[in-house]
């Protein structure tokens, strides 16, 4: 592991794959195709982009001008905040993979994850400069901020959908269909998780009350 880190080729490949995210931002169809089929992407780069996205999301709270983001700090839980990004991402990746693998999807779980993370790249790239920009504008000029902020989200959403199509080698129509289906799968998973957790807590309470009952009778 450490020998790999000291090698120059490892780093070159990492930076190349990271730079490839920029290529994808301008050439989504070619880019996402080459990402897996030409093995231009790496997990290291995907993880980096994900971490940058989470950082952008967190730093936004503190460094954006109060004109645009007002934070009630008493209520902020940083772990919940990170979870609110990672949890839907995990649901999306698993849900998408679970569905597409049944319907001729060529992408593997890891590749779905990688493509999704590469699709998130526009978010930090737009949000970080926007954060700095927000401190130099007034309320009247705030429209720029809002519009760019919305653009960054739409950009990501479109790129992720396009990415999925290329990874799975789907046609446009089939891709859209499976995007909707994946969203539905996410809901189903949330539903099952909720049932699961309530069942577990019921079970735990059952055992606790059973033990209590025993202790009373002893």
């Amino acid at each position: 592991m450490i020998t790999a880190l000291t090698r120059k080729e490892t780093w070159n490949r990492y930076f190349d794959s990271l730079k490839f995210a920029l290529y994808i931002m301008t050439h989504p169809l070619d880019g996402f195709w080459d990402l897996t089929h030409e093995k231009r992407g790496t997990y290291a780069a995907a993880n980096t982009i994900l971490i940058l996205t989470i950082m952008a999301r967190l730093m936004r709270l503190r460094f954006t001008s109060f004109i645009f983001v007002q934070v009630y700090w008493e209520e902020v839980n940083i772990f919940l905040y990170i979870g609110s990004i990672l949890f839907p991402l995990a649901l999306w990746v698993i849900g998408n993979w679970a569905l597409t693998t049944l319907f001729d999807g060529k992408g593997r779980l890891g590749q779905v994850y990688m493509a999704t993370c590469y699709g998130l790249a526009p978010y930090p790239i737009i949000q970080f400069p926007l954060m700095i920009f927000s401190n130099f504008v007034t309320v009247e000029e705030g429209q720029f901020y809002s519009v760019l902020s919305v653009i960054s989200l739409i950009y990501c959403a479109v790129w992720i959908v396009v990415g999925m199509g290329q990874i799975h080698e789907f046609s446009a129509g089939k891709n859209l269909l499976f995007t909707v289906a994946s969203l539905f799968a996410m809901l189903v998973m949330i539903f099952i998780l909720m049932i699961f957790f309530s069942m577990v807590s019921q079970g735990v309470f059952y055992i606790i009350s059973l033990v209590r009952e025993f202790l009373f009778r002893l």
Partner: peptide
């Protein structure tokens, strides 16, 4: 203004400051 989140007045002051 920033302490009390008064964005309108903050913007007025900031515009002049800028």
């Amino acid at each position: 203004f920033e302490v009390k989140y008064d964005d309108e007045n903050y913007s007025k002051a900031f515009k002049q400051y800028r």
